[in-house]
């Protein structure tokens, strides 16, 4: 073996050893998940609707959308998420709606109840309705990352900017954190 091959071989061995050490130290701390994949999701109890979800996503139109946890909804006529505060006329005119894009739709169910539904194509995740519903209603409207739109970035660029650190990686089995029934405290507030 001449000098050149010797240097070559020992260099390779050292580098291989480095890789083994790096991998080993990660594996032995049991920090590798083989079964699971992680996705990004918003914890609705931490989110304070700062509005960054609509602007910080790498997608031109955010992968975050408003989601309605119907379980919690009071089906109110005077919906804090639907109407601008201090609206007196409960009509569906654009001037009295809170949603800037008209994505929140209202449907009459029966006296005196209305169902509220989000048109996801129009929603831009501004969070105005979520805030309204949280301050005047039951808090049944919430923001969630929609995984059919999300690119599952290596690092979510909204998470980096979120002031309350509401966005974190969750196991794929629990890909959505939608608020549950208030009668079940475990579902209501998992934290």
């Amino acid at each position: 073996m001449n000098r050149k091959t010797f240097i070559n071989n020992s260099g390779r061995l050292i580098l291989l050893g480095g890789l083994v050490y790096l991998t080993g130290s990660i594996i032995f701390k049991r920090k590798v998940s083989a079964s699971g994949k992680y996705v990004w999701q918003i914890d609705p109890f931490k989110c304070m609707q700062c509005g960054r979800c609509s602007t910080q996503c790498v997608r031109e139109i955010s992968a975050v959308k408003c989601v309605h946890a119907y379980q919690l909804c009071g089906y109110c006529d005077l919906c804090g998420g639907y109407f601008k505060p201090n609206t007196h006329k409960l009509n569906t005119g654009a001037e009295s709606q809170l949603c800037p894009t008209g994505a929140l739709k209202r449907k009459y169910v029966e006296e005196p109840f209305f169902e509220y539904k989000i048109d996801e194509k129009l929603c831009n995740a501004c969070g105005k309705c979520v805030k309204g519903c949280g301050s005047f209603g039951n808090g049944s409207l919430q923001l969630q990352i929609r995984h059919d739109l999300c690119q599952n970035c290596n690092e979510c660029s909204i998470a980096r900017m979120c002031p309350t650190n509401a966005i974190s990686r969750v196991p794929i089995e629990a890909a959505y954190q939608i608020k549950g029934d208030f009668k079940n405290p475990a579902l209501t507030n998992p934290k």
Binding site: H68, G74, F113, E115, Q151, Y176
Partner: peptide, 30 residues
Amino acid sequence: DLEAQQRFPKPEFHTKYTQPTPTTPEPRGV
């Protein structure tokens, strides 16, 4: 305390209304 969290009680519907559940589309490329 829990009761207090829900400002407006859940309605009891008299007509045939089934409450929708929020959709949860699967992540892409599972």
